[in-house]
Nucleic acid binder design. Structure first.
Lengths: 188, 188
DNA sequence: ATGGTGATGACATCAGATGTCATCGGCACC
DNA sequence: GGTGCCGATGACATCTGATGTCATCACCAT
């Protein structure tokens, strides 16, 4: 697709992340990013919704994979088991890019604007998961609360992973989900 | 405190909400709000962090009330029961200002920027609750996931309340928490 | 009355975001 | 191999949110 130098989008993405890590998100202007990539400000905004968008590319695809995994789970599985299988896929994907994922997480934690965007992303995944669970036959409100709560558990595991980078994220997700079951379980 | 016309902050708040409802959040400029209140743009930003802040004043106080309620719950109560008591307080407070709360919710749902801010607010409450639960002696990670998951349930109830304005929010919170216990309970 | 204090106005500036139009390269089609 | 269309980019303009700076004014204590 590149008419001049190829891979416009990729160049912008790499330039942005490099500058964000170097001098911080707030201190980096879109003009700097564009110049660093040999392009113009206007072109940056043709490829990304806003300055934050750069750090969340690929999340839509991951969301799709989670949704497909849950949808493909055996119909006999209860909601939690099907959902857990989807979350494990996501955790494994992040684990494979550990250093990159941790670096992005650090950036996001250091910048409220980015944290907002991250929360929107998680909420979007939760909504999608809830829809998939509904389609599997679950009651809508129960599907929503299950999806939201399990995504919350995923976030806690993700956060814990940031504090213990040598642990394995999929394992942490399992542990936190167990803790959730124990604490809010109806046997309490 | 008012040197010229009194209640600067209140006038700005009312002007902002009026204009947001009249012509939408995005279509309203800070200059319009300030002019409508007989003040200047600069003064608006002296009283509010940003354009969105106006719609979330009072939430800090509500957060404090929730935290205090949980902290004051009998030490023998399990995490979920103590947390539920705090959430019920919040639900009752919102129920008392039903029309106002619903109007704000509609505005927030119509504007992604505001949704982001709402999620930050919920996350902040969840963090605070997790800290309180930790202080009560719960294991930290279990406290975090319990707080996050129960706040997620609260959000689902709040959302459902928007779709069924005649239901009582505290009752809905109870119902959704029951659904959560049933679905993620360790007896599954 | 008088000087201090804190809130406000007036002005300037910067960055994010968006619209508009010209331009340039590649591609299909003739 | 020319010709013209289409999509991506550059150049320019503009709007608005946000922030810094400084003067000014009312109120208050003394």
């Amino acid at each position: 697709m590149g008419r001049w130098e190829p891979d416009t989008r990729g160049r912008l993405e790499r330039a942005a992340i490099e500058l964000y890590l170097e001098q911080g998100f707030d201190q980096t202007t879109v003009a700097q990013i564009a110049k660093h990539a040999g392009l113009t400000t206007r072109t940056f905004f043709r490829h990304f919704l806003d300055k934050r968008d750069v750090l969340f590319v690929g999340m839509d695809e991951l969301k799709e994979r989670v949704a497909n995994t849950i949808a493909a789970a055996p119909a006999a599985w209860p909601m939690v088991k099907a959902t857990a299988s989807g979350l494990t896929i996501a955790a494994a994907a992040l684990q494979m890019r550990r250093d990159e994922a941790q670096a992005r997480r650090s950036l996001i934690r250091a910048t409220p604007e980015l944290r907002e965007r991250e929360l929107i992303m998680f909420a979007s995944v939760a909504e999608t998961v809830a829809t998939v669970l509904s389609d599997r036959g679950a009651a809508e409100r129960a599907a929503r609360v299950t999806a939201q709560a399990m995504l919350a558990a995923f976030q806690v595991a993700f956060e814990y992973w940031g504090e213990h980078p040598d642990r394995e994220l999929p394992q942490l997700v399992d542990e936190v989900l167990d803790e959730l079951a124990e604490s809010v379980g109806s046997d309490d």
